[in-house]
């Protein structure tokens, strides 16, 4: 099960992308804190009050309205920023699509599967490295925030408040990687896996936007995994961690289900010859 050669091969395949994603997000969060520290929040509050008059603004915002105009709340917006979402999606889909369909597509699965290890033992290092990488990338986000808070000397912003948001970010990355691995476990083309996983992300995002914008269709939030991605709700000092574990737990659970399905499919499927 713990074949050292397979683990080091998986790490070798992933480390550069992991390093790039972690570095980008660390710097982005650092930059975000710096920008927030320079913002005039009083002007922003006026803008929110009068600029969007008549609109259902609280529903559009990823965090409670009273927090948006504080530095503590503004910093949290970085965790739902498109840059962050794009980067973690790149990591999750790149790694998830590589686990089975990537190896089959490149033709390297042929030699890997011929070794005296179970197919699960081939998949496990891929899952392990992807999960550790996702954790490292999300930790880099929090480190960026934490470093920014220290460097900008924002004394009334405790950096530990962003740990639940980082956990939720990790959970959503874990789920997306697991879902992509499951799709890839019965595909032979990596690009097809990427296409399906990408389309899934877009559809899920649209569902969440519709659920947010239309009170009548609010139930749609239960049909998208992004319904459990709400880092903005975890700033509450008392309920923050509880909520974060509930939402993240759901994503971890779904992710484990997807990985289990991937392992089952991969263990039983015919391995096609490389094209």
């Amino acid at each position: 099960m713990m074949n050292r050669a397979l683990w080091s091969k998986s790490f070798r395949d992933a480390w550069l992308l992991m390093l790039c994603c972690a570095a980008v997000l660390l710097l982005f969060h650092l930059l975000f804190v710096w920008l927030v520290s320079r913002m005039n929040l009083a002007v922003f509050e006026m803008f929110l009050q009068f600029g969007f008059k008549g609109m259902n603004l609280p529903n559009l915002l990823p965090l409670p309205l009273d927090l948006v105009t504080t530095q503590r709340g503004m910093i949290l917006l970085a965790y739902v920023d498109p840059v962050v979402m794009f980067t973690i999606t790149v990591w999750a889909i790149a790694r998830g699509s590589d686990a089975v369909s990537g190896e089959i597509d490149r033709g390297t699965m042929e030699l890997l599967a011929a070794q005296p290890v179970s197919r699960f033992a081939i998949l496990l290092p891929q899952i392990g490295v992807t999960t550790v990488g996702a954790a490292a990338i999300c930790l880099a986000c929090w480190l960026g925030t934490s470093l920014g808070v220290r460097l900008m000397k924002l004394t009334d912003v405790p950096s530990r408040d962003y740990l639940p948001a980082a956990l939720n970010l990790f959970a959503v990355t874990f789920f997306l990687a697991a879902f992509t691995t499951m799709i890839g476990s019965w595909q032979r083309s990596r690009w097809k896996t990427i296409g399906i996983a990408g389309a899934f992300c877009v559809i899920q995002l649209i569902l969440k936007i519709i659920a947010r914008l239309s009170p009548d269709l609010n139930w749609l939030v239960y049909t998208t995994y992004l319904g459990a991605f709400e880092p903005g709700w975890f700033l509450d000092e008392f309920n923050g961690w509880t909520l974060a574990w509930q939402y993240s737990g759901l994503l971890f659970g779904l992710g484990i289900l997807c990985y289990s399905a991937a392992a089952m499919i991969f263990s039983r499927r015919d391995l096609p010859a490389p094209l």
Binding site: G107, T108, E110, A114, V117, A273
Partner: peptide
């Protein structure tokens, strides 16, 4: 019993593709 079988076999595929980064 593929795993046990593989312990007894060394296999060269028709189109052997190796890890390009190594």
């Amino acid at each position: 019993q593929a795993r046990e079988v593989h312990a007894r076999v060394s296999y060269l595929p028709g189109d052997a593709r190796l890890f390009r980064g190594m």
